[in-house]
Every structure is written in structure tokens, then in C-alpha cells.
Simulated assay, not measured.
Amino acid sequence: MQVEIIQGNDKKLRPSQINIVIHVIRAFSFAHYSFIHRAKEILLVKSVKEGFQYKNKFSDYLMAGEVQGLPIEG
């Protein structure tokens, strides 16, 4: 079986018998790991800008995220 890793959401995939969407698995794994390590809540934001506004207002917040499957700079 050939395994191909594709990052981002702008790729056209060719037909195959099995496709695994890592994004969902990664998101739930991150949430689970965060709560195990005493996160009180996870805030969802609509944009990177809004995320940085929270981070600037609350310096003890951890900011994690991605844009089209790639890490956010900063």
C-alpha cells in the first residue's frame, strides 16, 4: 500500500479506496491532551487576528492553531 502525506486543504486528491483526514484526529487529540493536562477550556476563534487579540489580552493563554493545515507564524 502506498502512503502519501498531503498538507493543506487546497490539494486535489486522486481517487483511492481509503482516505484518512488527520485534521479531525489531530484536533480531538489536542483537545484531549489539553484537558488531561488541566486546561480549563478551549476557546475557538473565527480568525488568526482574533486569536492574537486574546493572546495579547491574556498573556497566560496558550495559542495553538493552523491555517490550511500549516502552523500559524508568531
Rank of each mutant, 00 (worst) to 15 (best):
K40Y: 03
L13D: 05
M63G: 02
K12V: 11
Y54Q: 02
A31W: 03
E4P: 00
D60P: 02
R14Q: 15
H23S: 15
E41A: 11
L13Q: 04
I42Q: 01
V48Y: 04
Y54L: 08
V3R: 08
A39N: 02
L62Q: 06
D10K: 13
I18R: 07
F52G: 04
A39Q: 01
M1Q: 11
G65D: 04
Q17M: 12
R38H: 03
I20W: 07
P71L: 07
I22C: 15
R14W: 08
R26A: 14
G69D: 04
L70Y: 14
L43S: 07
F35A: 01
Q17F: 09
Q7V: 08
S29I: 05
K49F: 12
I5K: 11
S59R: 11
K55W: 06
K46M: 08
V48D: 01
I5E: 13
N19V: 15
S34E: 02
H23Y: 10
S16D: 10
G8K: 03
S59M: 02
P71Y: 06
A39I: 05
L62F: 07
D60A: 07
P15S: 14
A39P: 02
D10L: 14
K12N: 07
V21C: 12
I5C: 10
G65Y: 01
S29Q: 12
L62R: 00
Q17P: 00
F28K: 05
N19I: 15
E41N: 08
G51A: 09
F28M: 06
K11E: 10
F58M: 04
P15Y: 14
N19M: 12
K11M: 13
K46D: 06
Q68G: 09
A39K: 01
V67C: 09
I20Q: 02
R14F: 11
N19Y: 15
P15G: 13
I72W: 03
V21A: 14
E66F: 08
I36F: 01
Q53P: 03
S29C: 08
E66S: 14
Q53F: 10
I42V: 10
R26M: 13
S59C: 08
G8V: 01
R14G: 06
A64M: 09
F30M: 11
A27I: 09
A64G: 13
E73H: 09
H23W: 09
A27R: 11
Q68A: 13
R26C: 09
Q7N: 12
R38F: 03
R26T: 06
P71I: 05
I18A: 04
K40V: 02
K12M: 09
A31M: 08
R38W: 02
G69L: 04
I22G: 11
I42C: 03
P15I: 15
A39V: 00
I72C: 04
L13T: 07
S29A: 13
S16W: 03
E50M: 13
D60W: 06
